[in-house]
Amino acid sequence: MADKLEQYRGKRDPSKTPEPVPGEAPEPGGDDTFVIQEHHARSLHWDLRLERDGVLASWAIPKGLPEDPATNHLAVRTEDHPMEYLTFEGEIPRGEYGGGTMTVWDRGAYETEKWSDREVKVVLRGERAQGRYVLFQTRGKNWMIHRMDPPLRDPLPELVPMLPVRRAKPPRNAGEYAFEFAWGGRRTPALIEGGRTSVPLLRPLAGRFGSRTAVLDGEIVTLAGEEEVYIAYDLLYDDGRSLVAEPYRKRRVALEALEIAGARWQTAPAWPGAPEAVGRAAREQGLPGVVAKRLDSPYEHGESKAWIFVPTGA
C-alpha cells in the first residue's frame, strides 16, 4: 500500500520545523475527527483537515468556511497530513514550507455523507464550525467548499452611514447622550471578513481579526499633519451578530472590546454627559465640532435626530 504521507515528508525537514514528521506509515483510524487551523503564513488562510484512512485529508481555504449557502469559497487541496496535526500549534520557521504561525481554530467530530475523488460531503460538529458542507473539485486541481444548510449567522448590514443633524447647541438632556469629537475626515464604513478588507489602511488590522467578521463605522483622518489614521466610532456587526438594532451604549461596549488601538487605527474616545468639556477640547484641537449620540439609539441609515452635530463655533 502506498504511503499517504510521502509527499508530506518530502516537503519538510524535521530538524528545521516543529511540525510532526512521523517515520512510520499511517494506520487507519475512525475517520470521524476534524481540525481547522488558522495559518498566518505568507497570506492568512485556514486549513481544514478531515481524518481519512489514517491521515488528515487537507484543504487550504483562503477565506475560511463560507457562512452563507449563496457564497462558495476556494478550497485548495494540499498534501495529506499526519494525525498528530490534530493538535499541532506552533511557529513554522520562515523560509520553510508553510512558514508562519499556526493555531487550532476549531476541532471536533464529523460525519461523512459522501467521499469520492471529486466530491466530499460532511457534517461538522465542532464548537465554532457546525453544519453541512460539500467540497467539490472544479476544473484542474481547484476545489470549492459550499455550505449546504441555512446560515446560523445574521446577514451583514448595509453599509449606509448614520448621519447627524446640525444644531447650534448641545441637547439639554446631556445625560442621555455620549459626546464624541467630530473629526472632519473621510467617512469610511469598513467590512472585515476572512482576515481581509477593501479599506487599504486597515488590511494589517484585518489580518489580526482572523476569521472574525465585523463591520466598523468610522473616518480616515489626518492628525497633526502626520499619516492617515482610521478612527472607529461604531460597530454594526460582530462575529455573526448584527448590532444595528442594539442601543448605542451596547454597540460602544462591543466596539471597545475589540481593542482597536495602534499607530494607524484608533477607537474614538466618547464621554457621556460632558458637552462643555468635549466642546472645549474640540476647539483647542481645531476640530470642526462635537457629535452627541443618544445612548439608547439604534443605528439608523441616513440622517437621524439621534445624532446631533454641534460646530465648535456655536
Rank of each mutant, 00 (worst) to 15 (best):
L5R: 03
Q7R: 15
R9V: 15
K11E: 13
S15M: 11
E19K: 09
P22M: 12
G23C: 07
E24K: 14
A25W: 09
E27C: 12
P28K: 14
F34Y: 03
F34V: 05
Q37E: 11
H40R: 11
L44I: 10
H45W: 12
L48N: 02
L56P: 01
S58F: 01
S58G: 08
W59M: 03
A60T: 02
K63H: 07
G64L: 01
P66D: 04
D68R: 09
V76E: 03
E79I: 06
D80N: 09
M83C: 02
E84K: 14
Y85R: 01
T87D: 13
F88P: 00
G90C: 09
I92H: 00
P93M: 12
G99W: 14
T101A: 13
M102A: 08
R107C: 02
G108H: 05
E111F: 05
T112H: 07
K114M: 14
W115R: 02
W115D: 12
S116D: 09
D117M: 08
V122Y: 11
V122F: 00
R125K: 15
E127Q: 07
E127M: 13
A129W: 01
A129F: 07
G131H: 11
L135S: 01
F136M: 07
F136K: 04
F136V: 07
Q137T: 10
G140H: 15
M144R: 14
I145W: 02
I145Y: 06
H146R: 12
P155G: 02
P155A: 02
V160H: 02
M162L: 12
M162I: 12
P164C: 08
V165C: 08
Y177Q: 08
A178C: 06
E180A: 09
E180Q: 15
A182Q: 10
W183E: 00
G184T: 09
G185C: 12
T188G: 05
P189S: 06
G194N: 04
V199L: 12
P200E: 08
P200M: 15
L201Q: 08
P204K: 13
A206P: 01
R212T: 09
A214V: 14
A214I: 07
L216H: 04
D217G: 12
G218K: 06
I220V: 15
V221W: 10
A224D: 14
A224G: 07
E226A: 14
E227R: 15
E228K: 11
V229L: 08
L235D: 00
D238Q: 04
R241N: 00
S242N: 04
S242Q: 01
L243W: 00
V244E: 00
R249V: 13
K250A: 06
K250F: 04
A257C: 10
E259L: 06
E259P: 00
G262P: 02
Q266P: 03
P269H: 11
W271K: 10
A274H: 11
E276K: 14
V278W: 09
R283M: 10
R283K: 14
E284S: 05
Q285A: 15
G286T: 09
L287G: 05
P288S: 01
R294M: 11
D296F: 04
D296R: 11
S297F: 08
S297Y: 06
E300V: 14
G302C: 14
W307D: 01
I308D: 00
I308A: 03
V310W: 13
